[in-house]
Simulated scan of single mutants.
Amino acid sequence: MELRHLRYFCAVADSGTFSRASKELHVSQSAISEQIADLEREIGGALLDRSQRRARLTPQGELFLAEARKTLVASERAVDIARRSLKGEVGTLAIGFFLWGAGGFFARIIREYRKLHPEIRLSLYEMHTWVQMDALVSGKIDLGFTRPLEPPYDRTLRAELLYSDPVVVAMPVDHPLAGETVQASDLSAEPFVMCERAVTPALFDGILALCSKAGFSPQIVNSSTTWSGVLTLVESGEGIAMVPSGARHLRTPGVTFATIEPETTHIGIAIAWNPENMGPIQRDFLKLVLANREKIQSSGGY
């Protein structure tokens, strides 16, 4: 059974005669008659009563007509959805992000995208940057708001830098150096809490380079695999920490932040994707993000 069998049958049922159905479909009357006869043989019984001038539906034909119409509507919807999907108008989009790194711009981008593409189903996943890399490779997510690519992911993934986040000093609110700014050299005698190098090797090395340029090597007394963990250790009095300024938004009450002078170290926030998994939906989202890059940069991501 093919869709044309259903179309021919519905046309005869609606018009009442084979001749009218032939004109409406621009198909020969004999072809329509043959196809409906084939349909009846496949079903095993008559769907039309041809004993009178008008072709009337048998009771079985009435039941079949209702289901045939549903099938045709469903097939038309399937074609429409496929065509719209090819244009990026319907479908799904999975996006990875890490909360404090995405900043206020992330929520604004998502809201704007939902307005522009209300029929795209968005799935948002909060995950560490290194988890995002594997998720992009495996196809679990389509795009990720993450750190700039590092080996080996820079060989298979692509990314665009959105803005650079300056490194600031986190310290307990009652620390003697607490204030708006601090000289890097003033931190030489302080115990340091670090985010483990495996998490953000570029930033870890950048902090060491900043300290070296200021004339000292940091005394690392503790570490954590998360920035929230680093701030908890700082709040507990374990030491100070150099962190991306976005960490301010993790809202740790007992911690204050100071700008480092001179400001020399930054860590980037990028949008990354797997070129093998890019389709019209992914490209539309990426285009929207990049169109807003100047606004993101001017606001520092917030």
Results as ranks from 00 to 15, higher is better:
residue 242 M to P: 06
residue 269 I to V: 15
residue 274 N to V: 12
residue 213 K to L: 05
residue 249 H to P: 02
residue 275 P to L: 07
residue 261 E to P: 07
residue 237 G to T: 04
residue 262 P to A: 04
residue 261 E to L: 14
residue 239 G to K: 03
residue 247 A to G: 05
residue 258 A to G: 04
residue 274 N to M: 14
residue 252 T to I: 01
residue 228 S to D: 00
residue 212 S to K: 11
residue 275 P to H: 06
residue 220 I to K: 10
residue 266 H to A: 07
residue 272 A to S: 14
residue 253 P to Q: 01
residue 264 T to V: 08
residue 276 E to Y: 10
residue 232 T to S: 03
residue 250 L to E: 01
residue 247 A to I: 02
residue 236 S to L: 05
residue 259 T to D: 10
residue 213 K to I: 05
residue 248 R to I: 03
residue 247 A to P: 08
residue 251 R to P: 09
residue 244 P to N: 09
residue 249 H to S: 10
residue 212 S to P: 11
residue 221 V to I: 11
residue 263 E to N: 09
residue 276 E to M: 11
residue 245 S to F: 09
residue 222 N to L: 05
residue 212 S to G: 15
residue 245 S to A: 15
residue 213 K to E: 09
residue 216 F to R: 03
residue 266 H to K: 13
residue 260 I to H: 07
residue 224 S to T: 01
residue 236 S to G: 13
residue 220 I to Q: 12
residue 253 P to T: 02
residue 262 P to W: 02
residue 273 W to F: 14
residue 257 F to S: 12
residue 214 A to F: 00
residue 275 P to D: 07
residue 222 N to Q: 09
residue 271 I to H: 09
residue 244 P to G: 10
residue 268 G to T: 15
residue 271 I to F: 08
residue 267 I to D: 13
residue 227 W to H: 15
residue 216 F to C: 08
residue 268 G to I: 15
residue 227 W to N: 11
residue 233 L to D: 03
residue 264 T to H: 10
residue 250 L to H: 01
residue 238 E to A: 10
residue 237 G to R: 05
residue 211 C to L: 08
residue 256 T to F: 09
residue 249 H to Y: 10
residue 233 L to W: 02
residue 229 G to P: 04
residue 236 S to D: 11
residue 273 W to P: 13
residue 210 L to C: 05
residue 251 R to Q: 12
residue 227 W to P: 02
residue 257 F to N: 11
residue 222 N to K: 07
residue 221 V to H: 10
residue 248 R to Y: 02
residue 222 N to E: 13
residue 256 T to R: 15
residue 241 A to K: 07
residue 262 P to K: 00
residue 217 S to A: 14
residue 241 A to F: 01
residue 263 E to C: 13
residue 271 I to S: 06
residue 229 G to C: 00
residue 218 P to G: 03
